[in-house]
Simulated scan of single mutants.
Amino acid sequence: MQLQFLGTSAGRPTKERNVTSIVLAMPEPHNFFWMFDAGEGTQHRLLETRLKLNKLERIFITHLHGDHLYGLPGLLSSRTYNEGSGPLHVYGPKGLRSYIECVFQTSKTHLNYELEVIEVEEGQIFSDDSFTVEAAELDHRIRCFGYRIEERPRPGQLNVDLLSRLGVLPGPSYGKLKRGEDLTLPNGQIIYSSEVVGQPVKGRIVTILGDTCPCDNATSLAKDADLLVHEATFAAGMEEKAAAYGHSTILQAAQIAADARVKQLAVTHFSSRFDSTEVDALIQSVNAVFSNVVAAHDFLELSVPKQITS
């Protein structure tokens, strides 16, 4: 899994940072990516990456503030010109459907692909054989969600040495055992999957939060995540101002990461008052609370490695 930031500024773009958007490229054999928020100019940022709109499968909008949303209609419209664009699913708070419908009706926009808009509530909002997505409401000035993307566990490692001694050759039999099915040999001997396959390997967890003050749901969504993306609009010591605007300081983000026992924290959504040097200083200021923290910048890519097999 590969996460890339397309915009990392709070409220409005700057010369160095566009407003919020994040993409998550899914691992092989999946050949698609998901997007989280689409602030104004997102499709322009996307043009500077290797990603193509016809490979975009799902969009998750955290809330309906413009710096997270205003790029969505243009992106949806442009996607219709990408050959091979299949169905697209867009998730977000109540009001998202009427927003899209109003813009498209007013501008007489027509799409040549299927668009499904899902207005979410708390709980599991997506599930397939590979991933689940959970949404929970955060503490912001308007209704805002965070999303927890969880990869399903992978089968454990085959004990190929033992299978070789038992006379089982590589091929369909290996696949059957990996799927948890027992195998009967021609001589009648039964090889039990549980005896030749290691423990399932825990899937990866990525948590992407929208704008928020510190809250219990932020911690629960982030619990044991491999990567947490958390806003850090303000510096430590500006907690009163952050609360007034429904945001967090970098110190509060670091505390959430520590409390949730995440492996890595990426902070984003920086106020335009901070230049790159000041952002670096913000990171240094929270090392005592949480050390594995990185300041996001536009086009930063972060890999989320697989768990070590058992």
Rank of each mutant, 00 (worst) to 15 (best):
E195Y: 02
I191T: 05
V206Y: 01
L169H: 13
I205T: 09
C213G: 09
V229I: 11
P172W: 06
T233L: 06
T207I: 05
G171T: 07
Y174F: 15
E181M: 00
V201F: 14
V197F: 00
S193H: 07
C213H: 10
L227C: 07
S220M: 09
R179A: 13
A236H: 13
E195L: 04
K223F: 12
E231S: 14
L228W: 10
A222G: 04
G210Y: 03
P214I: 01
D211K: 12
G175M: 10
T219I: 14
T207A: 13
A222L: 03
D224P: 01
C215T: 00
P186S: 12
T184F: 00
S220N: 10
A232K: 06
D182R: 00
D226F: 08
S173Y: 05
G175P: 02
P170V: 09
P200Y: 09
G171V: 09
T219G: 05
G180E: 10
T207P: 15
L169C: 10
P170F: 10
V197T: 04
K176V: 02
S173D: 12
G180T: 12
T207D: 13
I205P: 02
C213Y: 10
T212F: 10
A236K: 15
R204M: 05
K178M: 15
I190N: 00
T207K: 12
L177N: 02
N217W: 08
G171I: 10
G180I: 11
S194A: 12
G175S: 09
L209Q: 12
L221I: 07
I190G: 00
A235M: 12
T212D: 08
I205H: 06
T184S: 01
G175R: 12
D224S: 03
T212G: 06
L227V: 15
I205Y: 06
R179M: 13
G237E: 13
L227R: 09
D216G: 11
R204K: 06
K176H: 09
E181S: 00
A232H: 11
C215F: 03
I191P: 02
A232Y: 15
R204L: 00
K176I: 05
M238C: 13
C215M: 04
P200L: 14
P172F: 02
Y192A: 07
A235L: 09
G237C: 04
E181P: 03
Y192C: 04
K202N: 04
P186K: 10
G237K: 07
T219Q: 14
S194H: 07
G198M: 11
D224L: 04
G171P: 11
I208Q: 13
I191F: 05
D211R: 08
D211M: 15
D182S: 00
K202S: 05
C215W: 06
Y192N: 06
A236I: 15
C215G: 03
T219Y: 15
S173R: 08
L169T: 13
V206K: 02
P186W: 08
L227Q: 08
L185I: 01
